Computed example of a mutant assay.
Amino acid sequence: MIQRIQTFFLLIVAFLAGVLPFFLNLWVTVDGAEVYAQNEVWVSIAFYVAAILAVVSILLYKNRQNQFVVNRLNMILNLFLLGFFVYRSLSLSGEAVVSEKGIGMLIPVFSIVFLVLANRAIKKDEDLVKSVDRLR
């Protein structure tokens, strides 16, 4: 259902994970070359999977419990992406590979925030349906 707020949040997550990492640089190397998601195969696959999970979650609007679980899986995937970016930018000593962090490294953070907001809205819908069933 398009009119629900969690659909809007999930569309934002699909846009963040499916489009932005390929236009915003993730980091800049010592040579001055900007690294985008398409330059790193596993990173681009993880971003595509996160976008696909968001779209699948939108399509699961009739089954709120499954939608909630798919959003949780998407949050875990974004946490792994965030952990990879933190590892990549902080564990390498000095100016070895990552010279400057890009704005694209924050995409998993924003995705997690919007997924949490979507899960809160799904939980509110589920509670509303349960309260209506109680009155019958």
Rank of each mutant, 00 (worst) to 15 (best):
A37D: 02
Q38A: 12
N39D: 15
N39G: 14
E40H: 08
E40F: 05
V41F: 12
W42M: 11
W42K: 05
W42T: 07
S44G: 12
I45V: 15
I45A: 11
F47G: 00
F47I: 00
Y48N: 03
Y48F: 12
A50R: 00
A50Q: 02
A51F: 00
I52H: 01
V55Y: 01
V56M: 12
V56Y: 03
S57P: 01
I58V: 15
I58M: 11
I58P: 00
L60N: 06
L60E: 04
L60M: 15
L60C: 10
Y61F: 15
Y61A: 06
K62F: 09
N63V: 09
R64H: 09
N66K: 12
Q67N: 11
F68Y: 13
F68P: 01
F68C: 04
V70W: 01
V70Y: 02
V70H: 01
V70M: 09
V70P: 00
N71L: 04
R72S: 14
R72Y: 14
R72T: 15
N74H: 08
N74T: 09
N74D: 14
N74F: 04
M75G: 03
I76N: 10
L77Q: 00
L77K: 00
N78K: 05
N78R: 05
N78S: 15
L79H: 03
L79W: 07
F80Y: 13
F80L: 15
F80H: 05
L81W: 00
L82T: 02
L82G: 04
G83C: 10
F84N: 02
F85A: 01
V86N: 03
Y87M: 10
Y87S: 09
R88P: 01
S89F: 07
S89P: 02
L90C: 07
L92G: 13
L92R: 05
L92C: 03
S93L: 10
S93Q: 13
S93V: 12
E95Q: 09
A96H: 07
V97L: 11
V97Y: 05
V98D: 02
V98M: 05
V98K: 00
E100H: 14
